[in-house]
């Protein structure tokens, strides 16, 4: 039983890391209806920029600020060059545009900073310690705390500020929002910039865990089942989805994996998400729209 709980706790904490990536998705999907496949590339770009600055002797906080500015600039550029010309196109077109975008960002990140693997030390020891009789990773707890702070900040931002109100208006009904004078383009730029910030945080944590390298952009593939389970429009859903995926993936790896030869972590979350979908086609927290004809 102790072992089971340990696996479960480890999985839940790993799930938080997935949630971090998924939150960036949800923000963008809510505000602009875009399923942003380039979120992973943004994570890679942020982490790579940050670690390269750090390696060139730039202090930690300055690197963070510069990277953040770079992410904001990227957001503005994306809004201008991709979102604005594609306004009112079918969602599937926008999705494919973000596929192209992810190629551009990945190519640019590696062209700028090279393709080698960088180590990233955030100064948090990744060693297990005992808590209530369970061996837990200190790093995972730190990641979970960071995620908690991030989610709280974002919720405050969106519930208390003017821009948050505008964002919710846009998410609810873009046309109506436009009609009362909310500037869609500005909202989009802000949201993509915030998603860039979330990407930076995720990039730092994942980079510290796995090393900063190309495969960071593939975590987008981990975030997708999370979104499916949580629903595309709910930050809370992204958290819960992340926890479900994280926990069940680890449990399956430990208990089912050995029976069928292991290495199932690539597809298991997808099969799980698929099963969820068959029961709840709009995710746990997503709303199913009534089709009007």
């Amino acid at each position: 039983m102790g072992f089971f709980l340990e696996v479960l706790a480890g999985g839940l904490l790993a799930g938080v890391m997935y949630s971090l990536v998924a939150i960036g998705f949800v923000l963008i999907y809510k505000a602009s209806g875009v399923f942003n496949f380039a979120q992973g590339a943004m994570v890679l770009f942020a982490a790579l920029t940050f670690v390269s600055l750090l390696e060139r002797g730039v202090p930690f906080w300055l690197s963070f600020v510069i990277t953040l500015l770079a992410m904001v600039a990227l957001a503005l550029l994306i809004e201008r060059a991709v979102l604005r010309p594609l306004v009112n196109r079918p969602p599937i077109t926008l999705f494919m545009a973000t596929l192209g975008l992810s190629y551009v960002i990945e190519g640019a990140a590696q062209a700028l900073w090279g393709a080698q693997v960088h180590g990233l030390d955030l100064g948090i020891k990744d060693e297990p310690f005992e808590f209530a009789g369970l061996l837990l990773s200190q790093f995972d707890l730190f990641a979970a705390a960071t995620a908690a702070v991030l989610v709280t900040t974002l919720s405050l931002l969106f519930s208390k500020t003017r821009i948050g109100l505008s964002l919710r208006a846009v998410a609810d009904d873009p046309l109506a929002a436009l009609a009362i004078g909310i500037r869609l383009q500005r909202i989009w730029a802000v949201v993509w910039a915030v998603a860039g910030f979330v990407g930076l945080v995720a990039g730092l944590l994942w980079g510290a865990r796995l090393g900063v390298q190309f495969s960071l952009s593939l975590i987008v593939l981990k975030a997708l089942p999370v979104l499916i389970i949580g629903g595309f429009t709910s930050i809370g859903g992204a958290i819960v989805g992340g926890l479900i995926i994280g926990a069940s993936e680890k449990l399956a790896e430990v208990y089912i994996g050995p029976l069928i030869g292991g290495g199932i972590e690539n597809w298991f979350p997808y099969v799980l998400a698929l099963l969820f979908l068959l029961v709840r086609p709009a995710g746990l927290f997503g709303e199913r729209a009534i089709e009007r004809v």
Binding site: G100, S102, V104
Partner: peptide, 15 residues
């Protein structure tokens, strides 16, 4: 990398 960037740009441009 260059090839990747050009492909990405072309995809977006075509769309």
């Amino acid at each position: 990398n260059l090839q990747k960037i050009i492909f990405g740009v072309l995809i977006i441009a075509f769309l």
